[in-house]
Nucleic acid binder design. Structure first.
Lengths: 188, 188, 188, 188
DNA sequence: AATGAATGAGTTTTCATTCAT
DNA sequence: TATGAATGAAAACTCATTCAT
């Protein structure tokens, strides 16, 4: 991937989250990226394409980051903890990407087919939850519901940590918050 | 409040959630509301004012709905269950309002002071959580974190139910999902 | 029809013939017409619509001018002379309209359906030629061919007169040129 | 002349007639010609130069084709018939070139000096008409007027034949149409 | 000679807002 | 109060042209 393309995606991420999609002129994205307007359209064709590509890139990264250090042999409880920890730690280091996902996952600016392609990066989670339900580790819930609840929960944690500012101990907060999810999901 | 004012707010809610803030022309809002463009500006002055008023209206309604049937004498566990049930049931009946809150709570279109005023409708939640922590009913967490986690969790449940379509049994899903929150928060 | 609308059509006519369709910015048309750019789009919606409306207006005027002072009882020879004279005299007084028709009748900027609607203003010519062929006044030709030949011929005369400049005697030239058409069409 | 240069001129002819001068990007011309954009500018320098060269090429070809098989000793009547026949037959086989001449002879895209150079290919027609007028074969008309009338007339015939589609008998139509011109010009 | 990525001025079009009625 | 024609600044996007390779 070209340097210019990367620079455009980087500017777009920051500006979209700060000012919204329609609130961010393509001319501004280009200027911040240090390229000409035409270059943006050379690489992405349309503004919609740009946000769509950005969406996919972030979803792919999130999916990849989550699964780092996990193993298909893991039990659900420890696998989930690892994933949650990966995700939160990545989210804290990449607040703009979290904000982007929150704002644009449900927005009308990302075309439906792109959204579907983005979801595909998280299919491994479904497998993990199914295993946990079968083994009796976690409550018998519809898998999609469980994923949704967990995801929103973790986003809440991340956004709380970010709001506290950089001087708080993120780890400490995670250790405080995570048991809520773990205890909540565990079958009793 | 005049009929025309109400009609404008109603159109604005639908259109903003479907097309975004900048993606919705004031002329379209006015047309859908059956009034002239000038009338919109007569009532709201600017487009920013319109979204700001809409935000407050919805936050006020959400706050009011949540606390229905609760009592300051309630213990945290049963109070929280009532609030959660009120909120989810209102959310399912008003999907556009949920979508609006998800999209615009963190967006740059709502001025900060409006956001603060909106949050004031949920202060009673802080009291409830504090009481629960003091009495040992729930885990000792920062109150703001607990609120954030609970709110995101419930939004996740609502959005899952809405996505399932109208033929699913919303109550059944709530009864399945809610224990996750309750068990998660409870001190053990 | 509003004054502003008329002014826009007038500017557009001059500028399109002088600089071509794509060579004429809408901003320039508006400026020359003494209105804001937005006003142009308020009345015509798109630039394509503007040229299409202009085309129809001119075709309608040409058709109306041609048939002035004719009578369904006329024989073809005298009817045709009258029409030709009307057309040439109108063409000399409205060189921009002639130039517009020459440049845009066959151009890709006028949509096909508009072209068809424009042609409808000249259907009365077909009747005249048919009568002349039946009565043996003029050569037995496909009517459409005869119309096409006559039209191109007269355009040639007009453009010659215009090119000679305003000091030439237009009438004299017409009297010199017209017999070529008349003698050419007459059956011998 | 290189193959690439030829290919560019060929694409340009088709695209200019289909989409107009400003409506045809140089990048498209290059792509259709199977060369890089830079190559187009290597051969022609500017887009204006390209259309200008194309104009001259076509005018030169038209002039050459017309005079084929004529002889300075011919009388005007038979010379003219030969020229007309040559022109119509070439026009039918090269509809894009006819369309190009119709659209761009009077357009602002061809610089005046190019237009003058193009006209030089038809000077031999002036000689022919003068001879016919002197000898009393044809009506005493200004030579330029006579040329203009004849040219427009023949263009009308060609465009009629083209519009009829490929299944019509072009020769038959020419034999029907040509006498109109001949009889019209002949002195009586 | 030939390429095509990069440029940025210029284009069509939109839309918040005003104001005379 | 209510209207909607008129405005013009600002947006997305295009494209002739250049130039390093």
């Amino acid at each position: 991937m070209t340097d210019k393309r990367k620079a455009i995606l980087k500017s777009a991420l920051l500006l979209f989250t700060e000012r919204g999609f329609h609130g961010t002129p393509t001319s501004l994205i280009a200027r911040e990226a240090g390229v000409a307007t035409g270059t943006l359209f050379h690489y992405f064709g349309t503004k919609e394409n740009l946000i769509s590509d950005l969406y996919l890139e972030i979803k792919r990264e999130a999916g990849k980051v989550m699964s780092e250090g996990t193993d298909t042999g893991d039990d659900t409880t420890s696998g989930l903890r690892r994933i949650a920890s990966n995700y939160v730690s990545w989210g804290i280091r990449n607040p703009a990407k979290i904000k982007f996902m929150e704002q644009f996952c449900l927005s009308p600016f990302v075309p439906d087919e792109t959204r579907e392609e983005g979801v595909s990066n998280f299919l491994f989670l479904a497998g993990l939850f199914e295993k946990g339900i079968t083994s009796g580790e976690i409550k018998p819930l519809p898998v999609e519901l469980a994923i949704k609840m967990a995801a929103e929960f973790l986003n809440g944690v991340i956004s709380y940590i970010i709001r506290q500012g950089p001087c708080c101990d993120a780890n400490e907060i995670f250790e405080l918050a995570y048991p809520v999810l773990e205890d909540g999901l565990r079958k009793r």
